[in-house]
Design a protein around this nucleic acid. Structure first.
Lengths: 216, 216, 216, 216
DNA sequence: TATGAATGAGTATTCATTCAT
DNA sequence: AATGAATGAATACTCATTCAT
């Protein structure tokens, strides 16, 4: 009898599990290749080969190169959001703890060059594919907003006025973080991400006490 | 007959001029396409076509795609160096004038998104081609050094201590400028380059008076 | 649970019914796609998808694309034979009734462009697959013979001599019918199938009274 | 000196000649393959291979598969037009000569199965590609008109009334000719194209003397 | 029986590059 | 110096077919 006992997950789910494993391996292969060779320099054949599958396997899991990029975007977002909310949660409203948390986050960025490179590839591709841009923009704004909130709470805790719109400052920090990551690869002897903290401290030091309006 | 008399110097120079024109048109076409489609998305055929020449004409002037990229890098460098030295020259040692000059420079960056995109493409390609990386690194360091000098003179004029290595700060500014340019394209409603100045003012405000050592 | 009790005959027959339904839906999907996209332009995936099944379901019912084509051939043959024998039966030996019947048949062909297109696809495929050609030839000859008999009886009833072999004339009529159907699709403002009857009437008018031999 | 003497055609034209030869070989290869394997069954790789060139050579001569089909259509048209006008020219207004000419033409069709098959492929493709249909329709109508004129002159010369619109009768003859060619390949023992003449003679015999109107 | 993930060979098309002209 | 036809390898993607479930 070809019947399957729905109570037995081992047989029923092994198929789904197997496919999930395939998908996962393809995604990881794509991430590595996109980071090191860029969108244009990464072929689907390469992705499938590195994952140890045929090209057809790629196409039964994704509709094309942009599709797997969207999946990477989704994961990138989740990862970043988790990191930021961790900083927020760990430090509560204590400004010192928050600063320390951000320092940790900046140091983290320093090591996770991959995500930074991927972010740049995603931004570049968003600029070139309108369809992808839509998806990307949503993620980006959410990300900028989260970092902006963190900055707001930090300055509030320090009794300082934010010198510009929170999301504008957040954009500046993200831009610098990504730009530095990009530099680090081509010029490995450049400055680390401690520069980021130098700028943050400068911003704090230069910020007016609460009461004045933002300046930008 | 389209023959040229080799004894006639005027025609000989017109030949050289004609070749220079060809080269120029190819470079400009390559710049536009690289900015809008990226290195991987730009084919030599497209470059030649947009310039109004055959593919063979491209190969008569450049040895390949990387070769024309090097030419673009050289021009990018010249352009940036000229801009920075203009800021330096115009303002002498007056801190106020220098700050105003930098503000102008930041505003300039805001408009010249093309150069920023090209810079990112160059950085990405440097990461992928060791041969290109060598050439790129030289230009990059020179550039960073020039901007660092400007910052040194600026802080000196203001009687302040640089909060970090000049070239590290320069790297940070360049990273932010490029990162912001990238963001601006995918998210056009984001913040302008005034953010750059906010950070610079913060750095100045937070900088210790001369005497203490740098902190990074 | 989706299990079926094998001891229950009603469910067993419903299984057979279900399979027959699957088969039927696949055949109909294949017919539509073959007519509109041709043999080469129709993929098994498309057939299964249009029928609402998986590709595996197709292979559970047919051994390949040619197999389902054979099934379509069988049905085509049955349909045509039924139509012709209906004309024969309805009209008995009365020449007038037979002519009227044929006129009806021609008009029918005019509407059923699908079968004509399918017939052309079948003929084309027969030319390309020897295995299929064998099956096709049998059907074709039977068909030609049936139409030939009809013509024989018609001319006999009219007291005329057939101007050529019955099956040769039948072949001519079928050729014209299919060719006209093909034309009608690419050139919809062309002549209808009344042309067929014009030719038939011409044949009758030009036929010698019984006694002389055929001329071809 | 790289100058070329424009008076010497051998060097200047050898390039064009060489390309024309390439193009010609590709067209001939495409014709053969399209006739024997159909549009869907013919790949560009096959065409290039049979012609002895690379796939790239195909693409420097044609923009795609449909493009070479259009070229074949053009040649088919020219060929058919030439054949029909030859029949017309050779026979003047003499009905007998014209009939003999047509008989020759029918016999010719019998041998040139290739063109008939190609015509069917063209018709099928016209049905599936709107862009191609436009080009095809023009050719088709011209062809039908030419054959219609021939029939008009023939019947006029015989003092008979055409039993239907000239172009409708022409469509019928062309349909039969193509349908018979198709049959001949799958059923080689079928009737030859003499059937065509039987139908033509029937049409003439059944035609009313001049004065009555057409019947369709 | 029916599923659909996976395969491997195939499809059309584009690429950087060469070379006779 | 500039042309552009031709190459051969690469590209994204589709195909018929298999097989564990």
């Amino acid at each position: 009898m070809p019947c399957v006992d729905p109570a037995n997950p081992s047989s029923r789910s092994s198929r789904a599990e197997s496919q999930a494993r395939t998908r996962e391996r393809l995604i990881e292969a794509a991430r590595q290749l996109l980071v090191s060779h860029g969108f244009g320099g990464t072929s689907i054949r390469d992705i499938a080969e590195r994952a140890g599958f045929s090209q057809g396997a790629f196409y039964s899991n994704f509709s094309g190169k942009e599709d797997i990029l969207l999946e990477l975007l989704r994961r990138y977002m989740e990862d970043e959001a988790a990191q930021l909310s961790a900083v927020l949660d760990r430090s509560g409203d204590a400004a010192d703890a928050m600063l320390a948390g951000l320092e940790l986050w900046a140091a983290e960025l320093d090591r996770e060059t991959d995500w930074a490179m991927l972010s740049i590839e995603l931004q570049l591709h968003a600029q070139r594919s309108p369809a992808f841009a839509v998806a990307f923009l949503g993620v980006w704004e959410a990300h900028r907003h989260a970092l902006g909130q963190l900055l707001t709470r930090l300055f509030h805790g320090l009794g300082r006025q934010l010198p510009a719109e929170p999301s504008a400052l957040a954009a500046g920090f993200m831009a610098m973080a990504h730009g530095l990551a990009l530099q680090r690869l081509s010029a490995p002897d450049g400055p680390g991400d401690c520069v980021l903290m130098v700028f943050l401290r400068g911003l704090i030091a230069g910020a007016a006490p609460r009461g004045d309006g933002p300046g930008c």
